[in-house]
């Protein structure tokens, strides 16, 4: 699917409760503005680098909105800011990862039920399967969702994880955001056969392709996969077709590897614009709502920007604090060296 082939009508919100469709719009818009803030923070030198999710808001918000944040658990990689936002993660703590205050972020991943930021892109996928198996071993209600991209889909861990999930019937959703580019390598040079969803069949589970710019379609597909998992039906692969309209990171230069016309075509299918039109068409929202959503999003982003910008550096002793639950005497000895020779 490319930008032109997708349904021109945009999201069909008829099956989505109006309040939910409005909250998904709010989250998408907030994520967009926060993404812009983060890029600005990088330009100002506050963040050493940032990875933009622009263009992927519907895929992230639509899937996260389907989760039950009381029971489910999401395993992100590093471009899932809108998932974090939708799940209610402390966004100052989340952005702290991009400010390089702490690799995994400063939010509590167990409390948030949103795993730590993880830069080994296939690495957390088997964790999601383990978490899900752990849930079914105690007959718990929760499901896991593993976020990864078309690039990560080449990682052996993703394949091993899918096979394990299929064998164990684990309640897990493999949510692939196929944003067409694994840094500089296009999906056709990354994914043999062209479809991540098609791989599901080989692992004994359904694979679903969905328009990743269509928040309603993403939400419905994720909800169906979660319902199936919760009912004991096992795992599902969802491949959301979307596009990374910005560079891979603030250090990247897409001019070296892709045609700007392709970016422009996808920008025209902007998921936030599509959702706004759909809300208007469905009669779910009026101008007052859109104005309030923007005002609210701007206030949220300002607070998050100030919060992360003003967050203190971690204490030097944090070098040692979390390496072990029970630190070794050897590490304590090294900490004394640090204290005496480097100093807090």
């Amino acid at each position: 699917m490319n930008a032109e082939e997708a349904a021109p009508a945009g999201p069909d919100l008829s099956g989505i409760p109006p309040e939910l469709s409005r909250s998904m719009y709010r989250d998408m818009l907030t994520a967009r503005l926060l993404d812009d803030e983060a890029i600005a923070l990088q330009r100002q030198g506050v963040f050493p680098a940032y990875v933009s999710l622009r263009g992927q808001e519907a895929a992230q918000v639509g899937s996260a909105a389907a989760l039950d944040t009381a029971t489910d658990f999401a395993f992100p990689t590093y471009r899932e800011m809108a998932v974090a936002l939708t799940m209610g993660v402390d966004m100052v703590g989340y952005l702290a990862s991009h400010r390089a205050l702490w690799h995994g972020g400063l939010y509590d991943p167990m409390e948030s039920r949103f795993g730590p930021v993880n830069a080994v892109v296939g690495g957390p996928v088997p964790h999601a399967v383990g978490w899900a198996l752990g849930e079914s071993l105690r007959d718990g209600p929760g499901c896991a969702i593993a976020y990864f991209g078309d690039g990560a889909s080449s990682e052996g861990d993703v394949h091993e994880a899918m096979n394990f999930a299929g064998v164990f019937g684990a309640p897990v959703v493999f949510f692939c955001q196929n944003n067409q580019w694994a840094l500089s390598v296009p999906v056709e040079a990354q994914v043999a056969g062209g479809s991540v969803a098609a791989r599901a069949a080989g692992y004994g589970m359904p694979g679903v392709r969905v328009d990743g710019q269509d928040v309603a379609a993403v939400y419905e597909a994720t909800r169906a996969a979660l319902r199936r998992a919760r009912d004991g039906g096992g795992p599902t692969v969802i491949e959301a077709l979307t596009y990374r309209v910005n560079p891979h990171s603030t250090s990247d230069d897409p001019g070296r590897y892709r045609d700007p016309a392709e970016e422009r075509r996808w920008r025209e299918r902007d998921p936030i614009t599509l959702t706004r039109r759909a809300l208007e068409r469905a009669g779910h929202a009026d101008t007052d709502f859109f104005d309030a959503a923007e005002t609210g999003a701007r206030a949220f982003c300002e607070a998050a920007r100030d919060g992360v910008g003003n967050a203190p550096h971690p204490a030097g002793s944090d070098l040692f604090s979390h390496v072990y639950r029970e630190p070794t005497e050897a590490l304590r000895r090294q900490q004394r060296v640090w204290r005496d020779e480097v100093g807090p």
């Binding site: 658990f73 395993f75 167990m110 795993g115 690495g123 996928v125 088997p126 964790h127 999601a128 399967v129 383990g130 978490w131 899900a132 198996l133 752990g134 849930e135 071993l137 896991a144 052996g156 861990d157 091993e160 994880a161 096979n163 394990f164 064998v167």
Partner: peptide, 27 residues
Amino acid sequence: RRVFDTPLAESAIIGLAVGLAMNGWRP
């Protein structure tokens, strides 16, 4: 449920353990 075979994939075995530990188990 307490003692079980896994498919033959060492990376996933340890990855499974990490996820199980995050869900309160002692693998």
